[in-house]
Design a binder for these strands. Sequence first.
DNA 1: AATACAGCCTGGACGC
DNA 2: TGCGTCCAGGCTGTAT
Length: 308
Amino acid sequence: MPELPEVQTIVDDLAAAGLVGRRIASCEVLWHNTVRPLSPTEFHHRIIGLRFASLARRGKYILFGLESKPASTGEGPQGAGAAQSLQLLAHLRMTGQFSLVSAEEAPDPHNRAVFTLDDGRQLRFHDTRKFGRLILAEDPERITGRLGPEPLDPSFSVENFYAALRRHKRRIKALLLDQHFLAGLGNIYCDEALYISGIHPLRKSDSISAKEADLLLATIREVLTAALKNRGTSLGDGETNYISDGRRGENGRALQVYGRKGQKCARCGSSIEKIYVAQRGSHFCPSCQPLKPNNPVSPARSGVDPGE
DNA sequence: AATACAGCCTGGACGC
DNA sequence: TGCGTCCAGGCTGTAT
């Protein structure tokens, strides 16, 4: 399940593989809804001949900057006048993956869009469950502008986070999953961060103390940073891998509650429970994450004072 | 304002 | 073995 660390890993891999600068020689849309609301024909028509000019991530979106001007082969900022007219926004949802392979490579039945590049390689969008989306946007801000702050952005302060929590009365799990509140967290890292912070997923956000908010934001950052180092989480033996070059993310081992229903909490030995919050399976330890704040059970991170 | 739920999808796990 | 059923989940749109 691609969340911030997985999406960032893909962006980094695609950049390292030299996608930027390549021109789209041809494009084939194999599942019409992937490029909705455009038709495959219209999508093809608008993207053909454009050059990948930049690569970035915002929340769980991959942002491919596209330029119409042909690549200048020389060094230097020669293409200064090229208008960055269009962006391709990719959202992987549940099972989306990108790969950058030789056009000779055997096609996969789950490929939903294939971009053949001017160097003979293909950028392939693979998506088993067909939830993923490729959006061509002239004003990507209309989409990305609605996203909440980036949790790893150092300018996003704990004061801002705490104030934002207090503005809502929602269950903390539902709020953290809301991309308009905070961009990039998904079910896995949300469960992990709440567990490590000792916060029950059903706690109302305005019941979170300043101290807890401090711990929670620090924990979210730790969890995401660790996952980034591990190239994200690839779950299950047979599960298809989102990693662009076929390598698996190694973060699965680090998960402490996600997918561990019925197993023992590593900290206290209680049985991990699973409930549904905001229609998502939510894993937590009932004794380490009490519903009531100010419970004497201390949070997981060592060296943290359990509260006032 | 917050929540619930259907819809979008397929493959794997499960029970019989 | 093979079938049917359920479940997983991010996000949007609609209803409550």
